[in-house]
Amino acid sequence: MAQMKLIPADNMKDKLWGKRGTPEREAMEAKLKEDVNAYIVGEAIRKARLAQNLTQEQLGERIGVQRAQISKLEKGTSVITLPTMSRVFQALGIATATLDLGVAGKIALW
Rank of each mutant, 00 (worst) to 15 (best):
L54Q: 06
I94F: 14
L54A: 02
M28V: 05
G42Q: 04
E43A: 11
A68W: 13
Q90H: 13
D100M: 08
P23A: 04
T22K: 01
L109Q: 11
D10W: 06
Q56D: 07
G102A: 01
Q3S: 15
A104P: 10
G42L: 06
A2S: 15
I70K: 01
P23R: 07
A108C: 09
L109E: 06
N53M: 08
D100G: 08
K5A: 10
A30M: 08
V103R: 15
S86H: 13
G93K: 12
I70Q: 02
T96P: 03
E61I: 07
D100Q: 05
I40K: 12
K13R: 14
A2W: 15
F89H: 04
G21S: 07
Q56G: 04
K106V: 12
M28F: 13
L92E: 08
T81N: 01
P83R: 00
G18R: 07
W110E: 10
A95N: 14
S71T: 11
D14G: 08
Y39F: 15
M1E: 12
V36K: 13
N11C: 12
L99M: 10
K72S: 07
M12Q: 14
R49P: 03
R62Q: 08
Q66S: 06
K5P: 15
R67I: 06
T84V: 12
E57R: 10
R62F: 02
L50Y: 13
A51H: 09
A9F: 14
K72V: 05
A27D: 02
Q58N: 06
L109M: 11
A48Y: 01
T55S: 12
G102H: 08
N37Q: 13
D14Y: 03
G21M: 00
M4V: 15
A97M: 12
G60R: 06
A91H: 09
K15T: 11
I70F: 12
G60V: 02
R46S: 06
G76W: 00
E57A: 11
Q69W: 11
E29V: 02
A30F: 05
E29S: 02
A44H: 01
R62A: 08
L101P: 02
T96Q: 15
G105E: 05
V41E: 03
D35Q: 10
I63S: 02
V36S: 07
A68Y: 14
L101R: 14
T77Y: 07
W110P: 00
A108V: 09
K15Y: 11
A30P: 08
Q52K: 14
D10V: 10
L32D: 05
R20W: 09
D100V: 03
K33I: 01
K31I: 00
A95L: 14
A2Y: 15
A91N: 04
Q66N: 11
K15C: 13
A108G: 10
K72D: 04
K19F: 06
L16Q: 03
K33G: 00
T81Q: 04
A48D: 07
N53F: 07
A30W: 06
Q58T: 11
M1W: 09
A91T: 00
I80W: 03
K15G: 12
Q3L: 14
S86R: 13
W17C: 06
D100I: 06
M12T: 12
P83T: 01
M85C: 03
L16W: 01
G76Y: 02
